[in-house]
């Protein structure tokens, strides 16, 4: 079980290798909060953007005299349009995530948490606001938020398959759902629908264990869920493999379809591969321009 401090340390390690993430917002509505996030256009930020000649309507106070003294025309210093982006995270804390097939593989929950927190660090470094879906931890800026996020991630939920938290989503923000999505697909559908309603775009990251992909069981087996709620007995496990795999593929396709309908992105990560690759994918997914299918 990863403690909050080690979780942070691991996440910092992951995040240290990537440049700060700049998330792009497609449109702004409502109240805009000023932040460090430069928008590559002039606006009301802190950083310098460009000099432009003064026009009628600009207040005299905005004239930059240093630049104007170089020529005849009066110049106004423009600042970059900076806006703070909100990113909401949800990591599945259910018991089913606390499963690893081998002693040298991390549990799915560990991997999910590390990836999410690394992502959060990158975002916060880039000036975004990161928080959790639901009311427990609304998005905020600052390093303290990383600690709070780590703390929240370390809480385990008791039930086997937790449904995605879809409440209190800030409109037009971004969201990242990290889970194994083995549970009820309807909850996921509900969450995505609500998110689409609010205009939240995001990433669905499917974390799986290699054993769940490969199904290497043989012989007479009683399968139990990690939380102990579900049970299935079979006399010959090798016979079930094909059908299980087809079911798994069907689940993935369903999730993919949901995402494309909702305008989200869908990614799969196996705990057997490196966390760096997962983080890279997440980063590009959030940084990408048009929503990819």
């Amino acid at each position: 079980m990863i403690t909050p401090t080690t979780l942070r340390a691991q996440a910092e390690t992951q995040a240290a290798r990537l440049p700060p993430l700049l998330a792009r917002a497609e449109h702004l509505a409502g109240a805009v909060l000023l932040g460090d996030h430069g928008r590559r256009r002039s606006g009301m930020g802190d950083d310098f953007w460009q000099y432009r000649p003064a026009q009628i309507g600009d207040s005299r106070r905005m004239i930059d005299h240093r630049r104007s003294a170089m020529g005849d025309v009066q110049f106004v210093r423009e600042r970059e349009w900076q806006i703070a982006q909100s990113v909401m995270l949800w990591v599945d804390q259910g018991a089913a995530m606390r499963f690893a097939s081998g002693p040298d593989l991390p549990t799915k929950a560990d991997r999910a948490r590390v990836l999410s927190l690394a992502l959060a660090i990158l975002l916060i470094r880039g000036g975004e606001r990161v928080g959790l879906t639901g009311t427990a931890l609304p998005p905020r800026r600052g390093n303290a938020q990383i600690l709070r996020l780590a703390e929240m991630f370390s809480e385990d939920a008791a039930d086997d398959y937790a449904p995605p938290e879809h409440r209190a989503m800030i409109p037009h923000a971004r969201a990242v759902f990290v889970s194994d999505f083995m549970g009820d697909i309807d909850a996921v559908k509900l969450a995505l629908t609500k998110a689409a309603d609010r205009g939240v775009r995001g990433v669905l990251y499917h974390v799986l264990d290699p054993a769940e992909e490969a199904f290497p069981f043989r012989g007479r087996t009683i399968f139990e869920s990690v939380g102990g709620t579900l049970e299935h007995e079979t006399l010959k496990a090798s016979e079930l493999k094909d059908r299980y795999l087809s079911r798994l593929a069907a689940r993935k396709d369903e999730l993919q379809a949901l995402c494309s309908v909702a305008g989200w992105q869908y990614g799969i990560h196996h705990t057997g591969s490196s966390a760096q690759s997962g983080l890279l994918w997440l980063w590009r997914a959030l940084d990408g321009g048009v929503a990819r299918t």
Partner: peptide, 9 residues
């Protein structure tokens, strides 16, 4: 065997 994919089974 503990297996989360039992939901699919």
């Amino acid at each position: 065997q503990r297996f989360p994919g039992v939901a699919l089974l």
